[in-house]
């Protein structure tokens, strides 16, 4: 059974702005799928429709056998705990320390007041430390997040998502604000999480060459529609030109174009 199915999903912000129209695909457990497409193509909206940060206009999202659109508030919170999310701008609470930010990953599991007051069990704290060790941040546990570098912040973001014990990881342009070195570190962590922990990853990316290097399967989105859905090795230069427009396609592929197709 597919972990996630998106069927006929459309999202209209208003009559003129159509973010997604009739998007359908299915993700199997353990896959590493990259969504590519230019800015404004609807990639971010698509990810947010999956955990209902954005409500769909029409269509059905099914996650782990649950019809996401029909969940009530409590069920939705429960479902969201199983879907980790990481962001381009990390979205950490800068005034809190690394550990506190990572522990936010447990909020969905806790009673409202225990979570609001930040009361965590020893087990949760131990798990947070284990996850931080996994992303190589054991030295920075008590550091405030605004003192970290971009790459470190994104690793805190990953740790927060991992502490949710997710089945699916949604990554919204995780490396768009990072330099090439940090980008590689982050992508390697995501790949490692996918292969070693078996967590399904759905990653939005701008960078086609990164997508080609890491993805098993690529979904191409253009103006709110899926224009390509298939294995990475079947993606042709023409399709990339189609997704990004021909001139941008040349720039994106450059000399790297030869290992496409």
């Amino acid at each position: 059974m597919s972990l996630l199915t998106v069927k006929g999903v459309s999202k209209h912000y208003n009559e003129r702005i159509v973010a997604l129209s009739d998007v359908s695909f299915a993700i199997e457990p353990g896959e590493f799928v990259v969504i590519i497409g230019s800015s404004g193509a609807g990639k971010s909206t698509l990810l947010r429709c999956i955990n209902r940060i954005v409500e769909v206009t029409s269509g059905v999202v099914t996650f782990d056998g649950l019809d996401v659109g029909s969940l009530d508030k409590r069920e939705l919170r429960k479902m969201r705990t199983k879907v980790g999310m990481i962001f381009q701008h990390y979205n950490l609470v800068n005034r809190l320390c690394v550990l506190e930010n990572v522990l936010h990953g447990r909020l969905g599991y806790k009673s409202t007041w225990a979570g609001a007051l930040g009361i965590y069990s020893e087990e949760e704290k131990a798990q947070a430390l284990r996850v931080l060790r996994l992303v190589g941040l054991e030295e920075q546990v008590y550091q405030r997040c605004d003192q970290l570098s971009g790459g470190q912040k994104q690793r805190v973001g990953i740790a927060r998502a991992l502490l949710q014990d997710p089945k699916l990881l949604l990554c919204d342009e995780p490396i768009s604000s990072l330099d090439p070195n940090a980008s590689k570190v982050i992508m390697d962590y995501l790949k490692k999480i996918n292969t070693e922990l078996g967590i399904t990853c759905l990653v939005n990316l701008h960078q086609v060459h990164v997508a080609l290097a890491y993805a098993e399967r690529i979904i191409g989105v253009k103006r709110g529609r899926v224009v390509y859905d298939g294995l990475t090795e079947h993606l042709t230069a023409e399709t990339i030109h189609d997704i990004y427009g021909s001139e941008a396609g040349d720039l994106l592929l450059g000399s790297g174009g030869n290992h496409v197709g």
């Binding site: 705990t81 999310m85 701008h89 969905g108 599991y109 609001a116 927060r160």
Partner: peptide
């Protein structure tokens, strides 16, 4: 930052948890 609120909503946090945390 609206992104921070969004991130906590995505973890399944409730309104009071987002406010306090």
């Amino acid at each position: 930052d609206s992104g921070v609120i969004e991130a906590l909503r995505a973890t399944g946090a409730s309104w009071w948890q987002i406010v306090c945390q």
